[in-house]
Design a protein around this nucleic acid. Structure first.
Length: 859
RNA sequence: GGGCGGUUGGCGCAGUGGUAGCGCGCUUCGUUCACACCGAAGAGGUCGCGGGUUCGAAACCCGCAUCGCCCACCA
């Protein structure tokens, strides 16, 4: 399970500098340079070494859920962030780049349950000697105490976190590992509780007993942001309600006949002529004989079902709205475990009818109710199958129920138009990469239907720092919660006693009781900007890093992470948490289907890194533009690997010609032309990076690099060798130009290929390429004629074409060649005539006399 | 149903008014002297469809089709 000791880390002494190896290789570069960077603390951030906020580039990295599996999409997305981090670092910014693990919450609990074959039963006592079974039996989970359960959560997340960190290191993320945080750490808990208490004091956090979306498997409330609408097969059932005055029946259609016992009204649209005569009258429900009113409400749709609906507490969110607005009675029949209440509710008239379904699951109750209706003749015809959408908890596999429960909420604009407007304005204020992703944010904010439900009825997470006083009867007074002082945080109200009470008063009339719930994971991870920047902990760090510069994420969490962090920062700090959000696309399988474990089409990131090297994988990631989905294709990794290899080999070749001179020694027109081209490439790549278009920056550098290798290097190598010593000035010009170009190219590639560029840098430079300055166009001459290089390249391709058509080796010398071209081209070629002439000529040449047209360079 | 994005050679993509590009794949050839985890050359496209604007449209405008994603949709 763990990946400890997977890769042998070379001894420090194996890292030699200033030596060009005979046979450069990519293998081992990740481990070698990863260790050097760690030992030298290359990416460490220190606020004390920073003068001002402007000198810093701070990044709010999404904390991955460590209970999950990392797939290539994560690798791509986190690499995109690293590209920006490395670029900003080379631009001279002090990069604040922490990493975090989201290790609290339901996903972790679920993983622990499955991994160890256990389940939490808070009523059990702690067993200090408990050992999880060696072979977990998923069918028979062992019940353990809450403390034992939390201990296992901590144990397993430690293991998972090591695996994650190893992967991020091997992919070369330049994070400052000293800043590592986790959402379950005491400090994160303190921040989460502190922010909650501040919300509470300002009235932004409140408790409410209200219908909530409820997952019956995990037995917890869930928030709107965690919903997922899925196709769910259902059937329409046409049921007859009986008019109380005995004048006949009213038929309604429902897909949830098992909720009939929870029915509290029939509702039709006020303008619906068919039902005008019924409004204000009553009917009795089939089977149960409960008398209910027929009411009018505009949310009823005339063309849906029978046009008149039964309102139950609660079948869906429309029921909730009707219940609230028409002030209907609460007739809950589904319990927290998803079963119908065992005891017959008091509003039921025909108790025997209910007894048949008492304690049953929703699924079997439905079957029984339908059978009973058919037997009583109160159902018309057979059920009609239909495909409908039902809301699921995104990590659950049963449809959500709606159950009245007491929960904590944080305002998010879902019930307050003014706050909603402010949050929409924050979205407009934020810079989005790519721009069009802001629409998703707006869609989401505009579609909110309630405040943010943050409490979860689970065990592993941040507890609410709240107790409630008990009255003489032992009933909690929820309106007067007891809170700890801020300097006491973090607190665990289940084991700590509130000020002014004795532990012996816990649960006793006149005493106190702890809030039993924990916060949703997002309620903590929404505070990641505050957690990492030292809010209410380190004023200096906070001043120099907050609000942050950059927040990368995937487009599926705009509604959760992006939004929730904007909410928290807006409420707490009255600013955006960061200036810019960058959204990465997904990595799909080759058929453009989302990768998923169940489809068996996932790729394990460590495998592709082992196979192709981290630089190759990063190259592939960089080729996916921000926000664009990208199909996974191993063949593409080979291209990145080839580039990394080429960097090694071409660098070795260039350095093999020996030292050049000063920049003023570059005198040959071809050399000046090449450098001027590179001058333009720097400008282009820099402009692209400034726009966060790392793909365009890479393409510019890469296109130049291949032409540089194929054409320029081939062209000048004879002159650079100067094997007969006849042209010292020309050789110096070439060697100087070659080294200048290599110096710039390594820096242009450094954000993308951190390992191979660092390796080559170490052959002939001091320090790390990653802490040198990003190249500036002014470093290179711009006076050269950039068209000259293009024309010479075209001539070279033409000459190679002759050899290729004559099927002779490329090394075959050309004895003579006549080139026909436009005068301007000829002028250019004459300036490179000597270099072209040293290209070898084919025997008995029949040289090309085709008109030469400059052609597009290869990229 | 609302929103957003895509549609360019077999595949993946670039190209925001002026003679269709790149990579992979494919074909052919080459390779002891930087690179076989290689090099060179080549074949391959009426730019989804229909209108419009323009001297000129892959690009701009309108409509349609289609794929994908986000949101809404539980009677």
């Amino acid at each position: 399970m763990t990946s400890e000791d997977q890769q042998p880390i070379p001894d420090e002494s194996t890292v030699t500098r200033g030596v060009v190896p005979d046979k450069p290789a990519l293998e081992g570069l990740e481990a070698k340079w990863g260790k050097v960077w760690e030992d030298e603390q290359l990416y460490a951030f220190s606020a004390s070494q920073v003068d001002s906020r402007e000198a810093v580039f701070s990044i709010d990295t999404p904390p991955p859920t460590v209970s999950g599996h990392l797939h290539p999409g994560h690798v791509f997305s986190y690499t995109h962030t690293d590209l920006v981090a490395r670029y900003q670092r080379m631009r001279g910014k002090k990069v604040f780049y922490p990493m975090g693990w989201d290790d609290n919450g339901l996903p972790t609990e679920r993983r622990v349950q499955n991994f160890y074959g256990v389940r939490c039963d808070p009523t059990l006592p702690y067993d200090p000697d408990f050992q999880p079974p060696a072979k977990p039996d998923p069918k028979h989970q062992i019940s353990i105490s809450r403390r034992n359960f939390v201990e296992l959560c901590v144990k397993l997340t430690r293991i998972d976190e090591k695996t994650f960190q190893d992967l991020w290191r091997s992919v070369g993320l330049s994070v400052d590992w000293n800043q590592l945080y986790s959402t379950i750490s005491p400090e994160s808990q303190r921040i989460a509780q502190l922010a909650f208490l501040r919300n509470l004091a300002r009235g932004e956090a409140y408790m409410q007993d209200a219908p909530t979306l409820w997952d019956v498997t995990f037995q917890t409330a869930v928030a709107q942001a965690e919903l997922e609408a899925r196709d769910y097969p259902g059937s329409y059932h046409r049921l007859d309600f009986h008019r109380t005055d005995g004048s006949g029946d009213v038929a309604i259609e429902t897909t949830r006949p098992e909720l009939l016992a929870a029915c509290c009204a029939l509702i039709a649209h006020p303008d619906d002529e068919r039902y005008q005569h019924l409004f204000g009258t009553t009917v009795t429900t089939p089977l149960y004989g409960v008398e209910i009113p027929v009411l009018a409400h505009p949310a009823a749709e005339m063309d849906k079902g029978a046009g008149i609906a039964m309102c139950c507490t609660f079948g869906d969110l429309t029921d909730v709205a009707w219940w609230r607005e028409l002030q209907l009675p609460t007739r809950t029949i589904i319990g927290r475990d998803g079963r119908l209440l065992a005891e017959t509710p008091d509003w039921i008239v025909n108790k025997d009818a209910y007894a048949q379904i008492a304690g049953k699951t929703v699924f079997s109750a439905r079957k029984l109710v339908v059978e009973a209706l058919q037997a009583s003749g109160e159902m018309e015809g057979d059920p009609t199958p239909t495909q409908r959408k039902a809301n699921f908890y995104e990590k659950g596999d049963k449809p959500l129920e709606i159950i009245g429960t007491r929960q904590w909420y944080i305002t998010n604009g879902g019930r307050d138009q003014e706050l909603r407007e402010q949050l929409l304005e924050r979205g407009r204020e934020l810079a989005w990469v790519p721009e069009h992703m802001r629409h998703r944010y707006e869609n989401w904010v505009e579609g909110l239907n309630g405040d943010w439900l943050v409490s979860r009825q689970r065990f592993f997470g941040v507890p609410f720092p709240v107790w409630y006083p008990l009255d003489a009867d032992g009933e909690p007074d929820y309106d007067h919660p007891i809170t700890p002082a801020e300097d006491q945080l973090p607190v665990d109200p289940a084991s700590q006693t509130p000020e002014g009470y004795q532990e012996s008063q816990r649960g006793v009339g006149g005493g106190f009781v702890a809030d039993p719930d924990i916060m949703d994971t997002w309620a903590t991870s929404s505070l990641s900007p505050q957690i990492v920047t030292g809010w209410e902990r380190d004023a200096d760090l906070f001043a120099k890093t907050f609000p942050m510069d950059f927040a990368p994420e995937a487009h599926d969490i705009i509604r959760t992470w992006v939004f929730s962090r904007i909410v928290r920062a807006h409420l707490e700090n009255h600013v955006l948490p960061w200036k810019r959000a960058a959204i990465s696309g997904f990595v799909t399988d080759p058929d453009r289907k989302k990768m998923s474990k169940s489809k068996g089409n996932t790729v394990v990131p460590t495998e592709i890194i082992d196979q192709f090297g981290a630089d190759a994988v990063r190259w592939r990631a960089a080729m996916a533009r921000p926000g664009m989905d990208s199909p996974f294709d191993k063949a593409q990794m080979k291209v990145g690997r080839r580039l990394a290899m080429k960097v090694l080999n071409a660098s070795k070749f260039v350095l093999g010609f020996g030292e050049g001179g000063a920049i003023t020694d570059v005198t040959e027109p071809v050399d000046l032309a090449m450098l001027s081209q590179l001058h333009e490439v720097i400008a282009e790549a820099t402009k692209a990076f400034e726009e966060y278009n790392y793909t365009a920056a890479l393409e510019a550098a890469e296109q130049f690099f291949w032409t540089f290798c194929d054409d320029y290097l081939e062209l000048v190598k004879e002159r650079a060798y100067d094997s007969d010593g006849s042209d010292a000035a020309g050789a110096t010009s070439a060697r100087t130009a070659l080294r200048l170009a290599l110096d710039v190219l390594l820096r242009l590639f450094a954000p993308f290929l951190p390992f191979v560029t660092e390796e080559v840098w170490s052959w002939w430079q001091t320090g790390s390429v990653h802490t040198t300055m990003w190249p500036l166009p002014e470093e290179l001459p711009s006076a050269g004629d950039t068209e000259l290089m293009a024309d010479v390249s075209a001539a070279l391709i033409e000459l190679r074409g002759v050899k290729s058509t004559h099927k002779v080796p490329m090394r075959t010398p050309i004895l003579s060649a006549t080139i026909t071209a436009e005068p301007s081209v000829i002028t250019h070629l004459k300036q490179a005539e000597q270099d072209l002439g040293t290209s070898r000529r084919p025997p008995g040449s029949s040289p090309s006399s085709r008109p030469l047209r400059p052609r597009a360079q290869r990229s």
